[in-house]
């Protein structure tokens, strides 16, 4: 995925924003790994654009994909022993349950700043560099070459 639409807009509004900045610093591609997510919500608090949001619903299927040896993995193991069938889909979460909530990511709101990636304690949000051809890159201290895209 190239720089997101919102990222492009920000880059366009900030003149020279991309000069002296290499690809992947302003603008990274965000990939979520929901099986590692523990629902702590730090990515949500860190996100300046509202692209990461905490849902009111939880999908038990997410529990079943959690790695063994983690708290969620233990919960899934216990549930699996008594389950009569595969989980039947998301359900609404009671108010005081703060961590068992889905995290919604809207790629079109994302500015690619990477704050969520640094905030996540479990590595559930990954930043991939945007392919170099998609961002204007100029060496620090020099005027933008005007090339790029």
């Amino acid at each position: 995925m190239p720089l997101s639409a919102r990222g492009r807009q920000v880059a366009g509004e900030l003149r020279g924003a991309t000069s002296g900045v290499s690809a992947g610093v302003l603008g990274c591609e965000v990939v979520r790994h929901d099986e590692l997510c523990v629902g702590c919500g730090r990515c949500v608090s860190a996100c300046p654009t509202g692209a990461m949001r905490q849902d009111d619903w939880f999908d038990p299927a997410q529990l079943f994909s959690a790695p063994a040896g983690t708290g969620r993995g233990a919960l899934a193991a216990a549930l699996r022993r008594i389950a009569r069938h595969e989980p039947s889909g998301p359900f609404r979460v009671p108010d005081r349950i703060r961590t068992f909530r889905g995290i919604l990511f809207s790629a079109d709101l994302c500015a690619g700043c990477g704050a969520c990636v640094r905030a996540c304690p479990t590595g559930a949000v990954e930043a991939l560099p945007v392919p170099v051809g998609d961002v204007e890159v100029a060496p620090r201290g020099l005027a933008p070459a005007g090339a790029g895209r």
Partner: peptide, 20 residues
């Protein structure tokens, strides 16, 4: 106790979702 009430409610929904 309010936290416990919601956790029990959560567990009940979890059980329901797997047919228990």
């Amino acid at each position: 106790n309010f936290h416990a009430l919601d956790r029990v409610a959560f567990v009940r929904r979890l059980l329901e979702s797997v047919g228990v």
